[in-house]
Design a protein around this nucleic acid. Structure first.
Lengths: 231, 231
DNA sequence: GCAAAAGTGTTCATAATACACCCATGT
DNA sequence: ACATGGGTGTATTATGAACACTTTTGC
């Protein structure tokens, strides 16, 4: 710090924060994990989780640290969404914030979060008012998620390791808020050649049974086509 | 500052900078405006221009301020590209930097910049070594530019107010480093319905002459299709 | 046998690509 | 008259969307 100020002659410094937008999927519905804010200002209101960026780490590392500290989750891939820097966006002071989103499996990891950390899952269609500009952050993250899902097959994180094409289609239905045609969706997804079919069927949703699929190893996956047409 | 620290109990603060990636177009070639760095560290080496984010402004405003101060350019639309936050990315100290790109007209505005501000235009194909991680910033900005140009018609800023379709095609050729088919390019661009043809021709490049076009007013422009297929 | 999801096939409309060909005109 | 870039038209292929149809099996 001394060193830097000597060289750069005391330019202003800022609090820099990261905020995590945690998406989950359950019961044909895209969900968002929200927390009751623990400290003032706006203590007790619904909020994303966030934390400070420290001296010796990147914003990505800071974000992973926040996620681990406040939810116990580790090694979840996260996507950077945007920067928020209006001087008055946080009534507690001038904070520059960088947002990331994560996709997690509600079945596997979501339930204990609700208990241990006082978190709650909300449908993205019925979100409460969030503190500061967090609603805007969520909207931006959802836009980024839709964009990412248009060129990369989502499911990793949100679904179980093994899933049926119907489950995947329901996930896409919920993310894009529309009904994909079953036949066309299946053809499109299989044409990407990123999934491999297992010799196992899920009989919970039909008598005939639907084959389970899983992702090929990451290093065998390459995306060359669009999956969803955004307009 | 007092206020904020009282509430937030002294989390670390950071120097936050913005960096401007300035693209231009001249002689069928996409160019980048570089400057000799004025202050240590790395004084005298080729660099992007940048500056500090102040207390009372957004990063977008800081970026506009830098551009105005260091080039005299005002009101140029800029696109945010990414954040760079490796703790050791700037040997002068821990600086978190946010990059933006701008498109400017070399003919109209570029020449005096070279004289007044000691700047120099480089072909993006033959860039010198830049300080810190600035080469990475440029690469990221170019990727973002290509992406933006795939769903929005570029030319605003880079070309003159009035331009021919051949000029526009040459611009696209230089940005994507490939040869667009003249006939198909023209059909694609006109199908977007964002240009209007003028009753004027440019005879400098052919005997027959090519019609000038200009953009329709912004509020009449809407993009629904892709222009370039990225793979 | 029938309902219901799984899965396949067919058709039609649209978009991308390659490329042939006409136009205008200065030399 | 011909070379050159401007501009138009056409054939081929690839892709997307709509939807009919077949399969399987529990009830």
């Amino acid at each position: 710090m001394q060193n830097m100020q000597r060289i750069y002659q005391n330019p202003p410094t800022h609090l820099v924060a990261v905020d995590c937008i945690i998406f989950g999927y359950e019961q044909e519905d895209l969900k968002l994990l929200l927390f009751k804010r623990q400290l003032p200002p706006a203590q007790g209101e619904w909020s994303l989780i966030g934390g400070w960026v420290n001296e010796d780490c990147t914003v990505e590392q800071a974000n992973q640290h926040v996620l681990k500290t406040l939810t116990g989750l580790e090694g979840i891939p996260m996507e950077q969404v945007s920067i928020y820097s209006k001087p008055d966006r946080d009534p507690g002071g001038r904070v520059i914030s960088i947002s990331f989103y994560a996709l997690i499996n509600v079945q596997e990891k979501g339930k204990e979060l609700e208990k241990q950390f006082g978190a709650e899952w909300f449908s993205v269609k019925e979100l409460p008012n969030l503190i500061f500009d967090h609603n805007e952050m969520v909207a931006d993250a959802l836009r980024k998620l839709r964009f990412d899902g248009s060129k990369t097959l989502l499911g990793h994180g949100l679904l179980n390791e093994e899933f049926t094409l119907s489950q995947l289609r329901s996930l896409y239905n919920s993310i894009y808020d529309k009904e994909f045609d079953p036949g066309n969706f299946r053809k499109k997804i299989l044409s990407l050649k990123v999934l491999e079919r297992l010799n196992k069927k899920d009989f919970s949703e039909s008598k005939k049974g639907a084959f389970y699929y899983k992702y090929k190893p990451d290093n065998e996956i390459e995306y060359n086509e669009r999956i969803v047409n955004l307009k």
